[in-house]
Nucleic acid binder design. Sequence first.
DNA 1: GCAATCCTCCGACAGTTGTAGTAGGCTTAC
DNA 2: GTAAGCCTACTACAACTGTCGGAGGATTGC
Lengths: 137, 137
Amino acid sequence: MAERSSELSPAELEVLNVLWEAGPSTVRQIHGHLRRSGRQVAYTTVLTFLTRLEHKGVVASDKENMAYVYRPVLSRGKVRKTRLKNLVEQLYDGAAGELVLQLMKTQKFSPDEIEQLRTLVEQLDEKKKRGDRAVEG
Amino acid sequence: MAERSSELSPAELEVLNVLWEAGPSTVRQIHGHLRRSGRQVAYTTVLTFLTRLEHKGVVASDKENMAYVYRPVLSRGKVRKTRLKNLVEQLYDGAAGELVLQLMKTQKFSPDEIEQLRTLVEQLDEKKKRGDRAVEG
DNA sequence: GCAATCCTCCGACAGTTGTAGTAGGCTTAC
DNA sequence: GTAAGCCTACTACAACTGTCGGAGGATTGC
């Protein structure tokens, strides 16, 4: 099992999510956050995850007064990108078209999002038409 | 570690992918398929994965002449759905809007897909407008 | 000053995953 | 009938994951 050391397990991701949402936090704060959102887990377990994450270079920490304050090093955007790429490769033959279509059919969108989608599709459509003309002429 | 028994590891998914693509196959066929696509792995390793998958109820097998022929029980669509749901929950706060937007901005689409996207957006737009009127009046 | 708290470190343990070797049972080409 | 192949079953093992408990040091309420 080679280069898995920089990958994030589900539980590690949960912890990282708290950090992204709440910003730099102590173990206790993260633990409280998780418990409040229904995740029953021991304090030391959270500590273990943070230690592992730090080891992977995904979070960093500074001692502040009594306790260490952890902060994310890896951005949510980066993780999203990697994960999405994996998903597309593993289940959509590397082509995201179908995925987008599937999402559009099954998900709900806010008016604002629909507006953005419309704009994006129009742009794509423009490009397509230009391509068509190029092929024709 | 409770109900993880029905989840698919990356390596298991690789094997399942072959089954989805190539249809029912023997261990040897799957092994060949994987090797041809650059995945160096021992015959018995593939067998292990298939055994585990069968144990999880994800594939089934029948003895045909000499060897067992394995076939998928779980559809690609189902796995896609589950995985997508996980991704959205874990990294997009349960709302797929942002995900779709991200994909639309970063991915390439075929003319046909663009056409479909346009249709879908138009439908969403219609709905939105009806909603607006309902709110106004 | 000392018990109650907190904090981190270390070790542990079972289940999962990736990977493969070996043993032993059929098939088949001679 | 026997060696060469192919097939599965069983075993193994290290790394990764999820989960904690206990040890031992610092802080603080009283």
